[in-house]
Structures are given as C-alpha cells and as structure tokens.
C-alpha cells in the first residue's frame, strides 16, 4: 500500500512524475476520475482552511466523496481514544485517509495502523508534503528547478514549509539564501543535511543584499509568539517586509511565494506586481492534491 507521509520519502524522479501528473490534470490533458465510487476521510484534528478545502475539492473533482472530522472536540480522541485506534476504525469506513494532526509523526503512525492509504496533510511542526509539492509545482510553472537561486525569508526555525521545501529542492542542486531574524535561523541539523545533499547555503543578514540574484523568494510567516514582546515583533516584521521598493531591480522572472495565510510579511501593493504568485500557488493545491490522491489510490 502506498502512503504519502514525508517529502523525504520522495526521490527526484518521483517528485518529477507527480508534478508532471499534476500538470496534465491541470491542463485537462488527462481527465482523472480515479475516485469514482470511492470515499475519503478528511481527519483534521487541527484547524485548517485551505488544506482541508482543497483536499475536499480534489476528491470531489476526482469523482469521490468525503467524510470529515473537523476538530478534536468532535471526535472520539476527546474520550481518550488513541490515533492508532481511530485510524484502524476509520479504515473500515473509507478508501483513503487524509490526516492533519498536531503531533509530529502522527501520519507515519497512522500509516502503520491504517489498512487504507494515508496522506499527510500536516503533522504539527513536521511534514506537510502536499504544501511542498505545490510549492515546487508553482516554481516549475515559471522555470526549471535545476540550479536556481532560492531565497527563504522569515521564520526558518519553526517554519515547516521552508524546511520541507529546502529538503525537496536539494534534489535539484539549487543555491539557497536564508534570511532570518536572530534565533529563527534554519536549524543546524537541517543545514547539515542539506549541505550533505550538495545544496549551497548562504546565510544573509539583509534580503536587500541578495534580492537581485534570486529566481524565487519564498516568504514565511513570522509568528508573534516567537518574539519576547510586541515591539520586537513589529520591528522585525517591518525589516523583513516584502514591498514594491524591495523588488525594484530584481530579475524579471523572479517569483514571490508564500504558503499563506500572510500576516503582514508581504505588502498588499505587491499583489498586483508580476512577481506575486502566492494566490496561484494556493490554487495549485487542487491539481497537486488530485495527483497525490490518484497516486495513492492506484
């Protein structure tokens, strides 16, 4: 049985094949109805809007139906049931499980106990492979992934999307430029791994120093709770803000991505510039998640 748990489980060939499948679905080159007559459980034990909605939409477009759990309160978890038991029971109801859970490794555990395929829709601060794949898909719409210059800016310590994207990009020999506030730098263990995989990492103090060299600027959210007080948060947020002024003189084909929701990291004035791709990126969640569902249901 095939599960999608972590981007680390993917080879470059598997990523390329899945992105190509998503492209064919997106361009209506292939009509996919692989979930006709099938039911998928969306087990969301943590709040989510776009991931849950786009998975629901993807299932429906593939001809399937969904049954949902939207919170811990609405589930038997509150009665003390283990996740292992929950997925064993739900496996008997459906043909696949999409799981979002606050604990890291929850999806891996679920895959051990489920008797149907499991797709990880985000486990705590851990993996969120569908986000990574749609990030890659969005970049690939504009340029080949091989050897590009990618800037990661924001909370790179706790931002799981940045970690997974960097890990996936390591298959493509990219040059990474990291720009993070003090204390929120990319964790040492991840840097070590990336370097081992042949990725060049350059830690930069100011985004201005590198912005003109970048092909992709990936912006992540700065969370207020990571800062000692509001004043520090506001100061840092202002200095990391992506504005039209910052983007003057950049490469014509630069794209700015953000996993959304944003909290002031990107000036709304950037939305109308040709570099802004974050809403398209969110929309790409549909073909990518359709391709993932099709993959596990094969």
């Amino acid at each position: 049985m095939y599960h999608i748990i972590s981007i680390l489980d993917f080879s470059r060939e598997q990523i390329d094949a899945l992105l190509e499948k998503a492209r064919k679905i997106d361009k209506h080159i292939e009509i996919e109805r692989s979930l006709e007559g099938k039911q998928v459980a969306l087990l969301f034990f943590e709040p989510s809007t776009r991931t849950r909605m786009s998975f629901a939409s993807a299932v429906s477009r593939l001809g399937g139906t969904t049954i949902c759990v939207d919170s811990v309160e609405g589930s038997s978890i509150i009665k003390g049931e283990t996740l292992a038991d929950t997925v064993r029971v739900v496996s008997g109801y459906v043909d696949a499980i999409v799981l979002r859970h606050p604990k890291e490794g929850a999806a891996r555990l679920a895959s051990e106990f489920a008797t149907v395929p499991v797709i990880n829709a985000g486990d705590g601060a851990g993996q969120h492979p569908s986000q990574t794949l749609l990030d890659l898909y969005t970049i690939r719409q504009s340029m080949p992934l091989e050897g590009i210059n990618v800037g990661l800016i924001g909370d790179l310590r706790y931002g799981r999307t940045a970690h997974s994207l960097a890990q996936a990009l390591s298959h493509y020999h990219v040059n990474l430029f990291t720009i993070a506030p003090n204390g929120l730098e990319l964790p040492e263990t991840i840097q070590l791994e990336l370097r081992d995989m042949g990725t060049d990492i350059c830690e930069c103090a100011e985004v201005q120093d590198v912005i003109r060299d970048l092909d992709v600027l990936y912006v992540t959210r700065l969370q207020r709770e990571r800062f000692p007080d509001s004043a520090t948060y506001v100061n840092v947020q202002q200095s990391y803000k992506v504005t039209p002024q910052l983007l003057s003189g950049v490469k014509d084909h630069l794209i700015v991505l953000h996993p959304l929701p944003r909290a002031g990291e990107i000036d709304p004035a950037v939305d109308s510039l040709p570099y802004a791709r974050y809403f398209e990126q969110a929309r790409n969640g549909i073909p990518v998640r359709m391709a993932m569902l099709r993959e596990v249901m094969q």
């Binding site: 283990t82 996740l83 292992a84 859970h101 604990k103 490794g105 555990l109 051990e112 601060a125």
Partner: peptide, 13 residues
C-alpha cells in the same frame, strides 16, 4: 527529544 513527537504520547508504539 522532540516533545511534539507522537512517540512521546500514549499511542501503542
């Protein structure tokens, strides 16, 4: 050592 890891809960693993 990750307190957020599922292996540090009462799951049967």
């Amino acid at each position: 050592p990750n307190p957020g890891c599922i292996s540090n809960t009462d799951e049967p693993i």
